[in-house]
């Protein structure tokens, strides 16, 4: 892909990124940060490509470390965001949370 096309993508994505968060209640700042955090875990795609095209064992090992780190970022990011947002979903069965707290 030529440089100008990539630059065009970059500039347009900057504007979309600025717009999408312009008016957000502070209540949601934490989940938003966490959600954005999960999305950059998509570096996993890059890590997989590098690992799959590795030509030597040391490169493969480092690339697999990158795959591991990126997976933790991507999967953990979405799961933890979901768990945060679950809390906003309404009241769960009474006592379930306090029982959990009492157990520890």
């Amino acid at each position: 892909m030529d440089a100008i096309t990539l630059l065009t993508f970059f500039v347009l994505a900057v504007f979309v990124g600025f717009e999408v968060f312009s008016k957000v209640s502070s209540t949601l700042h934490t989940p938003l940060m966490s959600g954005a955090n999960a999305i950059h875990g998509i570096i996993l795609v890059g890590a997989v490509i590098v690992a799959g095209q590795a030509e030597s064992v040391p490169v493969l090992v480092v690339a697999l470390i990158a795959v591991l780190l990126a997976t933790v970022n991507l999967v953990g990011g979405f799961v933890v965001t979901d768990r945060m947002l679950e809390m906003f979903g309404g009241r769960r069965a009474p006592g379930s949370a306090s029982a959990k707290e009492g157990a520890k």
Binding site: F10, A13, V14, V16, G17, A36
Partner: peptide
């Protein structure tokens, strides 16, 4: 995706 996260 990276740019979106960077900007937002």
């Amino acid at each position: 995706a990276g740019t979106l996260v960077g900007a937002s």
